[in-house]
């Protein structure tokens, strides 16, 4: 008799495979002439349960490629990258890169970046909570020392920097499909995904705002982040950025 570990692994291998279940496993299953069909209920559940989790996370990709193609992609993804976590909340992290590697999708090179927005949306949704930086916390900080401090973006923040107009593609595919024509020649887009309170926000931003937030998120001081940003965007308007975002929940703390 095979040890339990071997039997369970045999079952798992067959669950994940697309070939007919091996004889060694079938020999372990009571046979009423339907043991393959009975086993296939489990194989189907494995693909459908995890594939549905993927569909929940990537509704725009599903809309763009169509239900049938999405089902095939999800099946292949579940087999290649089975869930590594006991919770399914963030299952599908590798899906954007997976899409990039599918030869049939090479005509739609923007899909991976659209998928990155969708992953970021769910990750931001489940990210830890943080309170909004408010005016009182800033009051006693002398203006001349502010450059040496660190502004903490909300822990839910994610950045997407794409060569394609993926913000528009994502936005017109919220809800019912629209007839908008989007040309890939429109150019790239820079996106910040963040959940300042309850609602996840997907913001299309300028390159300066993206660079500045990225630098702050990687623990640079305000002064250093600003200097870095000016290197690629010389006309970045810091005052305007702060007027709009310093107290809108984009940040949760200011620290030495």
């Amino acid at each position: 008799m095979k040890p339990l570990s071997e039997l369970q692994q045999l079952f798992c291998d067959a669950l994940r495979s697309s070939d007919s279940p091996p004889q060694a496993l079938l020999d372990e299953i009571e046979d009423d002439g339907l043991r393959i069909e009975r086993f296939n209920v489990y194989r189907n559940n494995f693909i459908v349960l995890n594939g549905d989790a993927l569909a929940d996370m990537y509704p725009v990709i599903k809309q763009l490629v169509g239900d049938e193609a999405f089902r095939m992609l999800a099946t292949a993804y579940v087999r290649t990258f089975p869930p590594m976590d006991r919770a399914l909340l963030l299952y599908g992290e590798a899906f954007p890169d997976f899409l990039k590697g599918i030869p049939e999708l090479s005509g739609a090179p923007y899909l991976a970046d659209v998928a990155r927005i969708e992953y970021a949306w769910t990750a931001a949704y489940h990210a830890e909570d943080a309170t909004r930086l408010d005016e009182v916390q800033m009051v006693n900080i002398p203006a001349e020392t502010q450059g040496d401090l660190r502004l903490r973006p909300h822990p839910s923040i994610h950045f997407i920097n794409s060569s394609y107009p993926v913000y528009r593609i994502w936005a017109v595919n919220q809800g019912e499909p629209m007839d908008d024509v989007i040309s890939l020649d429109e150019g790239g887009s820079h996106i910040v995904v963040i959940r300042p309170q309850r609602e996840v926000e997907v913001r299309e931003v300028g390159l300066g705002e993206l660079r500045f937030l990225e630098s702050l998120a990687s623990n640079e001081t305000i002064g250093s982040a600003y200097a870095h940003t000016l290197e690629s965007v010389p006309d970045f308007d810091l005052n305007r950025f702060f007027a709009e975002h310093l107290f809108d929940g984009t940040f949760c703390a200011i620290e030495p």
């Binding site: 570990s5 369970q8 798992c12 489990y42 494995f46 089975p82 590594m84």
Partner: peptide, 15 residues
Amino acid sequence: SHGYEWYTHDLIPLF
């Protein structure tokens, strides 16, 4: 629901 380091997320019968 797991025989390896990955999870089936389905409930598989026991022996």
